[in-house]
Design a binder for these strands. Sequence first.
DNA 1: TAGTGGTCTAGACCACAAT
DNA 2: TTGTGGTCTAGACCACTAC
Lengths: 276, 276
Amino acid sequence: MPAPNPPTPGLTPEPSTPDGLPLAEAASPEAGLPPTPAFSPLYQQIKTLILRSLQAGEWKPGDMIPSEFELAARFRVSQGTVRKAIDELATDNLLVRRQGKGTFVATHAEQHVQFRFLRLLPDAGTRDSQGPAERRIIECRRLRAPAEVARQLSLRTGDAVIQVRRVLAFEGTPAILEDLWLPGTPFKGLTQETLAGDMGPMYALFETAFGVRMVRAQEKLKAVAADADAASLLGIQPGHPLLSVERLAFTYNDVPMELRRGLYRTETRHYFNELS
Amino acid sequence: MPAPNPPTPGLTPEPSTPDGLPLAEAASPEAGLPPTPAFSPLYQQIKTLILRSLQAGEWKPGDMIPSEFELAARFRVSQGTVRKAIDELATDNLLVRRQGKGTFVATHAEQHVQFRFLRLLPDAGTRDSQGPAERRIIECRRLRAPAEVARQLSLRTGDAVIQVRRVLAFEGTPAILEDLWLPGTPFKGLTQETLAGDMGPMYALFETAFGVRMVRAQEKLKAVAADADAASLLGIQPGHPLLSVERLAFTYNDVPMELRRGLYRTETRHYFNELS
DNA sequence: TAGTGGTCTAGACCACAAT
DNA sequence: TTGTGGTCTAGACCACTAC
């Protein structure tokens, strides 16, 4: 017989969650001072717990997570509730459902979603109608974070960061010049050789080599004129219009993990965006 | 007593749907030739029916639609199934749910979602920290569609279209030069006076004056150099880098209804985008 | 055949808004 | 108090995948 409702569900003992249980209410069950709107639906709390396991690395990118029924038993809720939690995580591209197989931790290594964050497309044809991007690492060095870089990466000025500069070309024509800044600690050991010896998306390498999964990003676009440096690397005249794309990418929990500044040539390509 | 499953639900007589009923299967129940994957879940079919009512104008932007239970009765399905259909329509920004009140047809007239499609933000501060955009209509004329415009709007070359050119300024400084092309038939009667006399978002005007609701759009961005014309209207030097934003906007059912080409000044503003 | 996600139902109760 | 959407449950059956 179903208990009325919220049966104050329990949770099987977890490493980092001694007892921690989804609480329907937050604080102040009586003290009516702050009109605490602190109420969170069960499925949201389940979502948080799953997210915590993802962060903790309990399931790695590409792994299959436990079935909906297993998770339901573990969290002591119904399958439908787990389902709704997973639904939202799948919508956020953190998990991928595959009917008949299971639910998997999303990864940048899949063929299907490669370059999910690269929005530069050829004006004619599809992304695949041109060959793969040719990559050339210009430099890769450790340095102390300038103030602005530190601010955006939530570091302190002077903390160690790694800077990478590279050029991407399509069919021999340079198209993108990128500068990346990565926090030194999580990316300790990253060298030019690591990058050069790798095929596939850089974010896939970050997952396998450093356990850092990029989950979302925000970009700020401007039109700028090429300076001498950029012009020379991209094979254009100084003053030529370029699309400047400044990206801040985040891992789980909205932790910033990469600052990237790209300069795109857009004579035969464009940045594509869907609005809804 | 619940019938096993799909109880082949019925539908109350509808104007444009004499009997048409959600069919679980499509064609060829026996002819095993094409491995027709034509199967559509009930909630998808309900979604289509609701969409049809939206297109037909049964409920207009801002209207409240019938409650979930009413729709469930009308379509002869359970409330949960209607719920899932509405969920998806709400995710697509076609409907807006308001707890305790009802579900409403989304509109561009709401304060909250104004300029939903305008992604140009000030580098410092928020969108609201600057005054509202000042609008100046440069011209508004009827003409025969050039080939490229016709193609994108799914018209025939030479069909009547309306072209609008305007400049948007912030605090006295011109920031955006836009050219719009609209199909002549749905927008019959649109004049410079109509546009000039109107406050509020242009897409809100389109809803109230022409019954055209823009649902989604796609944009292609490039960096370009200002020509003499644009330079003069935007108060910059020719050759100055500008962000070119070419937008194709759609109503219900993916029907293209507007082609727009904007040139954005990005010295103190940027185009913002979220990736996930 | 077994296991997974996907769909659908029916019913209970909660949260929010208007009356 | 009533009506709306929001949450949660329990159980049935379907569709896809693998063995």
